[in-house]
Design a binder for these strands. Structure first.
Length: 592
RNA sequence: GGGGACGUAGCUCAAUUGGUUAGAGCGCUGCCCUGUCACGGCAGAGGUCGCGGGUUCGAGCCCCGUCGUCCCCGCCA
């Protein structure tokens, strides 16, 4: 007989009855009747009830053994009597009558209970992650993650893609996020960087003629965390295709994403082709480039109505080149004063000067700003938002960027607070036509708004003749339920176009050669048109697992401050290691 | 870097308006219990009320500071 098990804890059924078996696992629950002891033995596969009768010498040992100890049980499978069958368990029609028990690993009292889900402060859960992972909920999430990744691989290979590995130790790039740096021992003063994404490598694989690349790619970015963004590292389904248009990329991604979501979720979901929303439209209508289409509220631009208005606060903003945005909401006129007050407070916390609103109630229009508005203006606003009795229209006025952000956040908050978000649906969309360049207030200069390697729409003609801020790129995002799954682009594979685009963004040719020489040189030696995208794996799993926090789908996540509380990373190193790496520390003063 | 919420037993939480010895459930320890499946019963241990300072006759509760965790803004092409 195998030293540990002949069967798993999820395996035994009524047709195993009368067999002598051996199972191993963790003591999940004990029910001690003094002369009779039940142990629910748990392993990865399930739960089996072990019964220990009073004539057994090991009864006392088993009574003493604490939860989560590992034991090996040998015994006979017996059918449970009709009145003791547990229909809730797949193994509930049988039990194992113990004939011998070995305590393999005794557990101390635990910092939190395994049998109680969603229990324990996150700090402790992270420190004892291996315990948290024993709990059914997290255990299932991590399994789901594995299954999703297997399915993604299968689907990508089915579409003719080849999986590659690309370097983890690579060079720092000036664009994008902060890099994680790795000092070189062999080259004093020089550093590797961990890849923010395998962007250049995948493009070089296209130049190398592999046609279709994919990778479940680890990406490293030294930026602060969010609920849907784990600090430090995350995974992307990175893909790139040669000789394709934007539509070709969309077709593949829609098939893979819709397929995988359909495979792992029963929720209803948009069918391909997914709605395509130009960036500019999304920013006005939803105040976001990752709109949650489940929320049935659409923001309107009403700047023109206030352009000649007597309401100075708004007119002045419009005069300065700002905008007024209206958020029409159905049937909430009856909400309490504090509902509106809290919303105003929320708007202010986002940096808004205030939050005006009009209420259509009792056949009249009320609200703090109604006295400043003419009848025609109110009529125009009503028409614009299809306002009827019981409706409310909120107003945000600011420069376009801030107004978008604030109105978008209010739209999302209203959706959540008013419970307007259906929980049983996945709404997908593409955001297309991202601007190629944007004005950076901080540096007072023009920079790339997204990926510098994107192909500008209109090509060289656009770069030469158009106001850079009006040039769009073949740059796109795929969004699901307000979560940005991914950014992608048709790439710029022409050296001339590349130099020109970088010139507009303030990089002279020799700088481009220095930073991106590898890729530019490649493009001078025969480069196929190509494009791709990189959906975030963690976020997909999060959506499919129904989690709102990304740590719930990562086996060993770091906390918000990018610390691994279990492994104690980051940590100091020995002086010898520093010396070998030619590093001297220059630490901030103690205490603040 | 900024804003918000939270911090009471190992865990989840309670503690009236500032008022006696800070409570309950789970877990833990001991005892009882032969059909439970969140078994049940009895008893017990366990607390720097995150930390420091202040106000007060008196602080878990009020004030100031600080630390920690999470959420958000900035940041993340």
């Amino acid at each position: 007989m195998h030293p540990y098990r002949t069967h798993t804890c999820g395996e035994l059924r009524i047709d195993h009855v009368s067999q002598t078996v051996r199972i191993s696992g963790w003591v999940f629950r004990k029910r001690d009747h003094g002369q009779l002891l039940f142990i629910d033995l748990r392993d990865h596969y399930g739960l089996t009830q072990v019964v220990i009768h009073p004539d057994k010498a090991f009864l006392e040992d088993c009574q003493r053994v604490r939860s989560e100890s590992v034991i090996i049980v040998t015994g006979k499978v017996v059918a449970r009597s009709q009145d003791t069958i547990n229909e809730a368990l797949p193994t509930g029609r049988i039990e194992v009558m113990a004939e011998s028990v070995t305590v393999e690993s005794l557990a101390d009292p635990l910092p939190f209970q395994i049998a109680v889900e969603d229990d324990g402060p996150e700090e402790t859960r992270l420190k004892y992650r291996f315990l948290d992972l024993r709990r059914d909920h997290l255990h299932k999430n991590i399994l789901l993650r594995s299954q999703i990744i297997a399915s993604l691989r299968r689907r990508m290979i089915g579409h003719g893609f080849t999986e590659f590995q690309t370097p983890i130790l690579t060079s720092s790039s000036p664009e994008g996020a902060r890099d994680y740096l790795v000092p070189s021992r062999v080259h004093p003063g020089k550093f590797y960087a961990l890849p923010q994404a395998p962007q250049q490598f995948k493009q070089l694989l296209m130049v190398a003629g592999f046609d279709r690349y994919f990778q479940i790619a680890p990406c490293f970015r030294d930026e602060d965390a969010r609920a849907d963004r784990s600090p430090g590292e995350f995974y992307q389904l990175d893909l790139e295709m040669s000789y394709v248009t934007q539509d070709d990329v969309f077709a593949v991604v829609e098939d893979v994403i819709h397929g995988v979501f359909g495979e792992f979720s029963k929720l209803t979901m948009d069918k391909p082709p997914f709605t395509r929303i130009p960036y500019a439209e999304a920013m006005v209508k939803y105040g976001s480039d990752k709109p949650d289409l489940r929320i049935p509220i659409e923001i309107r631009d009403v700047s023109d109505i206030f352009r000649a208005s007597k309401f100075n606060a708004f007119r002045a903003v419009v005069d300065k080149g700002g905008v007024v945005r209206a958020i029409p909401v159905k049937g909430i006129a009856g909400k309490s004063r504090s509902f509106f007050d809290k919303l105003v407070e929320y708007a202010q916390s986002l940096g808004s000067k205030g939050l005006a609103y009009l209420v259509w109630e009792g056949g009249v229009v009320k609200g703090p700003i109604v006295k400043f508005l003419s009848e025609d203006e109110i009529k125009a606003l009503a028409a614009c938002g299809d306002m009827v009795e019981g409706d409310v229209m909120f107003f945000v006025s600011d420069m376009a960027g801030a107004a978008n952000k604030i109105s978008g956040a209010i739209r999302v908050k209203l959706g959540a607070d008013l419970e307007l978000i259906p929980k049983d649906v996945f709404r997908f969309c593409w955001i297309v036509d991202f601007p190629m360049f944007e004005y950076d207030e901080e540096t007072r200069s023009i920079g790339f708004s997204h990926n510098p390697f994107s192909m500008p729409q209109g090509g060289m003609k656009a770069l030469l003749e158009q106001d850079p801020l009006t040039i769009k790129a073949f740059q796109y995002d795929i969004v699901c339920n307000g979560v940005e799954l991914s950014s992608g682009a048709i790439r710029n594979h022409s050296p001339e176009l590349m130099y020109k685009a970088f010139e507009i963004a303030g990089y002279p040719p020799d700088e481009v050669d220095k930073r991106f020489g590898g890729m530019i040189n490649a493009f001078k030696l025969g480069a196929p048109p190509h494009g791709g995208i990189a959906p975030g794996v963690d976020r997909m799993v999060m959506l499919l697992a129904g989690e709102s926090n990304i740590r719930e789908v990562i086996a060993f996540p770091m906390n918000q401050k990018a610390q691994d509380l279990m492994m104690n990373a980051p940590n100091t190193v020995m002086d010898k290691q520093l010396r070998e790496l030619h590093l001297k520390l220059d630490l901030p003063k103690e205490g603040k």
